[in-house]
Amino acid sequence: MRPRSGEGMQQADRTAPETGPDMEGAARRHWMGLLARAAPKTLAERLATFDHALPAFAWLRRPETGSVMVRGRAGGTGAPFNLGEMTVTRCVLRLEDGTVGHAYVQGRDERHAERAALVDAMMQTSQAESLRAEVLDPLTEAEAHARAERAEKAAATRVEFFTVARGED
C-alpha cells in the first residue's frame, strides 16, 4: 500500500464532478460512513486478507489530522450550538486509472485514513464486488453484531415498573 514515488501534491478539486446518480451517491455515503466508524484494527485485518493485490496510488492530499466541531441543538431540536470538537484524519488519493478515493475518519490514525480512502477508490472500480464481499460486508456484520450485543444488554436492564393504566388508554 505504499504510494508510488514521484507523485506530487495536487489539488483535491480535480475530484469535483463526482456526484453521480442519487443511488450511487447514497451507496458511497454508506460505505464511507462504515469505513469511518470501523475500528482501525478491524479494517486493517480485513484488507490484509483481501484476496487481490491492492492497487498503487498517488496522494492528492496526504493524511492530515485535524478537528471537526461537533454541534448539538438546544433541547435536542432547537438552535444549533457548538458542543466540542473531535479528532478526524482525512486524505485523498488517486489510483493509476484516475479513480479518486476520499477519507474522513474519526481519530488520529493516518494508516486508517489511507486504507479507508483506498477502499473508497477501489469501490468505484471493477474490484467493487469482491471488495464488498470480503471487506465491507464483514465490517457491516461486525458492526451489526456489536450493536446487537449492546442493545440486548440494554434491553435486559429495561425497567418493568408495575404499570397503572393511564386514563386515556
Binding site: 485535524g66 471537526v68 466541531m69 461537533v70 454541534r71 441543538r73 470538537e85 479528532t87 478526524v88
Partner: peptide
Amino acid sequence: LPRFGASTPVDTG
C-alpha cells in the same frame, strides 16, 4: 489541530 469544519447538528433522537 487544523479545523476541518463543523458537523451537522447531531440528532440525539
